[in-house]
């Protein structure tokens, strides 16, 4: 009885570890995948351009808040509201996480 229970416990832990990790990998993948398109202006490594701001290495929650705010039209901001309106909050979180993990 006891060995079986331990065995079961072990499997449960394994499953948690596995799903936990898989979930994280999946979120990272989604962020990296979505970010492919951002790189065309912001740079493959998120380094930005002459007037287009860098994204790599930014604080995750700060970047997330900024992206949420930029879903609405702003004075002096012409491009980003038209793009960000097409992303839901989970996608913005995945993107913010991805850019936060990149080397600035």
């Amino acid at each position: 009885m006891q060995p079986k229970s331990l065995h079961f416990q072990f499997l449960t832990m394994l499953a948690f570890a596995f799903f936990g990790q898989a979930g994280q990998v999946q979120a990272q993948d989604a962020g990296a995948q979505l970010a492919m398109a951002c790189g065309s202006c912001h740079g493959l490594n998120g380094g930005g351009g002459e007037t287009i701001p860098p994204l790599a290495g930014r604080d995750k929650s700060e970047l997330l808040e900024q992206m949420r705010a930029l879903k609405e039209p702003h004075e002096g901001v012409t491009i980003m509201p038209r793009i960000l309106r097409a992303y839901d909050d989970d996608e913005l979180k995945a993107l913010a996480g991805h850019f936060a993990r990149m080397e600035p």
């Binding site: 740079g43 002459e50 007037t51």
Partner: peptide, 24 residues
């Protein structure tokens, strides 16, 4: 009717985009 400032900003972004993508 976006105004001169917005048009100037978009012209600058166009150059920024072009230089980034071609250098990459």
């Amino acid at each position: 009717a976006a105004g001169a400032q917005a048009h100037a900003a978009e012209a600058a972004h166009a150059k920024s985009w072009y230089d980034t993508i071609t250098s990459e």
